[in-house]
Amino acid sequence: MEPVFKKRVSKATILKLQRKNSFEQSMMLPAVVKGLGVTLRHFFNNVAGGERSEAVTVQYPEEKFPYPPRYRGLHRLMHREDGAVRCVACMCCPTACPAHCITIIPEETGNGNEKRPAVFEIDELRCIVCGLCVEACPCDAIRMDTGAHAHPSENRANAILNKIDLLKNATLNDKDPHSTAIQGGVPAWRDTNKTP
């Protein structure tokens, strides 16, 4: 297409392209009739219903679209076998968090676990659901696999989930609060018994 207007402004070039209309297009009416044909076909197919219906609407509250397995939803904090929080307050997730939505204050446990979060808060309003906290966690303690959305709340304070809320989330949607995953998979040499 040949530009009808060409002008160079600093580093950019402005081109104006003119599409040549065919007679049929400039008449407009045939195109309108053609478009009406398409919409009419869909209209009558859907009005007829049954097998001819092309609607793909999901009736949300009654039926739900299944989320993909790696869907990132509401956070949860995993449990140890005795129900204690698995998190060791290593601060990797607030460090990785680009939105600065995680607040952790660590404390000594006094038992073999040595360190745990005294305060663990996630501001779900700030969270951008990027999943970097899950990537950063060395203990598989924080996960976003609940498949749930952040709950609506009437004030901002309610959108901040504390440690208790997050530990409760561990059992959301019948998830196992104790499950463990191998981070990064099994190293190759363990299978082949070769030195790296």
Binding site: H42, E54, T57
Partner: peptide, 10 residues
């Protein structure tokens, strides 16, 4: 309703 029917919605 009609626009929905035309656009494959409900």
């Amino acid at each position: 309703k009609q626009s929905a029917k035309m656009q494959d919605r409900i």
